[in-house]
Amino acid sequence: MKIRVPATSANLGPGFDSCGIALSQYLTIDIGPETQKWQIKHQLGSNIPSDEKNLLIQTALDLAPNLTPHQITMTSDIPIARGLGSSSSVVVAGIELANRLGNLGMTPQKKVSYATKIEGHPDNVAPAICGDFVVASYNNNEVNFVKHTFPDCDVIAFIPNHELLTSESRAVLPKEMSYRDAVKASSIGNVMIAAVLNGNLPLAGKMMEKDILHESHRQHLVPHLKKIREFCKAYGGYGSFLSGAGPTVLVLTPPENTEKLVTALKAFDHEAEIDVLSVEKEGVQIF
């Protein structure tokens, strides 16, 4: 049995800690034979545990402590600490591992609720579980979410050659904001979501670039964001936004403009990884 979980991008600009999309990069868990102790085979680096200390197994055992150990092969093309949901994908895979091996019969609602309690917000885990575009709310320990089809487009990921830890990126955010700014931020996010639901990517992209909740406070950590926005406008992209806590920036574009944008981004930073992705319509899958 294999478990496959997509990468995700959270926030989409003004949808801070609420909106997210699933992307066509994946974490794959191949469940092998039973063993005396959990064995995780991977090539993700020496800092990733290969036993029960791995986040995958810790998550699964929290849900189902009596699971029989297995040999597991873990592969991933989701960059670590780049704002593409690498840790969330492992949490979601751990939940599905427990669900399948423990015959828990978890509904999507239960999966999202449990994953949100672990992560602290649903913007990555909800699309990783459900796929596509998800708008979610986590208040008073209750999670509510809605999945909807994201309009067709190419998603260009500009992935810098350096990490940015979520803890560092969150540390620069203000503790509070004025009521007037909160209303403004809400209106921007509301229009962005409505535009996505209406299939209006030019308007959605415009609103994605008007966020005042987090991107303005993180600009000094991601100086490349401003330049990428210039390329986006010059070469016909719909809009660009910081992916999660960064440093990755995503650019939404019509397919006919993708090549021009990719060429400009590669010339801008030869060390950055430039990937052309799509919105993954399915969430966690079993093969």
Rank of each mutant, 00 (worst) to 15 (best):
Q39F: 00
D30G: 04
I31T: 03
Q36D: 11
N11Q: 12
E34I: 01
G13H: 15
A22L: 09
A22Q: 07
Q39V: 02
W38T: 00
I29V: 15
K37R: 06
G15P: 08
I21Q: 07
V5F: 08
F16E: 11
D17E: 15
S18T: 15
P33K: 09
K37C: 04
N11M: 12
A7C: 10
E34K: 09
Q39D: 00
G32T: 00
Q39Y: 00
D30C: 01
D17V: 12
G32L: 09
E34D: 09
G15S: 11
Q39H: 04
C19K: 04
V5C: 13
W38P: 00
F16I: 12
N11P: 11
N11L: 12
D17G: 06
T28V: 14
S9M: 03
L23K: 10
Y26A: 02
L23W: 13
S24N: 03
D30F: 01
S18I: 13
T8W: 08
Q25A: 11
L12C: 04
L23F: 14
D17A: 09
S18D: 06
T35P: 02
P33V: 00
P6C: 14
L12P: 07
E34Q: 07
T8E: 09
W38S: 01
W38Y: 04
S24K: 05
E34N: 05
W38A: 00
T8Q: 05
P6F: 13
L12Y: 10
Y26E: 01
I31E: 07
C19F: 15
P6E: 14
A7V: 10
F16L: 05
P33R: 06
S9V: 05
Q25G: 00
Q25C: 14
S18L: 12
T35Q: 13
Q36M: 07
Q39K: 01
I21G: 06
L27M: 10
D17Q: 08
D17W: 15
N11H: 13
T28N: 03
C19L: 15
V5M: 04
A10W: 10
N11E: 13
A7F: 14
E34S: 12
D30Q: 13
D17S: 11
I21S: 01
S9I: 02
S24R: 09
A7T: 12
T8L: 02
A22R: 08
G13A: 15
Q25N: 10
I21T: 05
T28P: 03
A22P: 03
S24H: 06
T35V: 01
T35N: 08
I21Y: 04
A22V: 07
T35I: 00
L27Q: 08
S9K: 05
Y26D: 00
S24V: 06
L27V: 03
Q36G: 11
L12V: 09
S18R: 12
V5D: 04
L27I: 01
G32S: 02
I29A: 03
G32D: 01
F16Q: 11
A7H: 13
G15E: 11
W38R: 03
G13N: 12
L23S: 07
L23G: 08
Q39T: 00
T8P: 01
D17C: 11
W38F: 13
P6S: 12
C19A: 15
S18P: 01
G15Y: 13
A22I: 07
L12T: 08
E34M: 02
A10T: 06
G32N: 05
Q39L: 03
V5I: 15
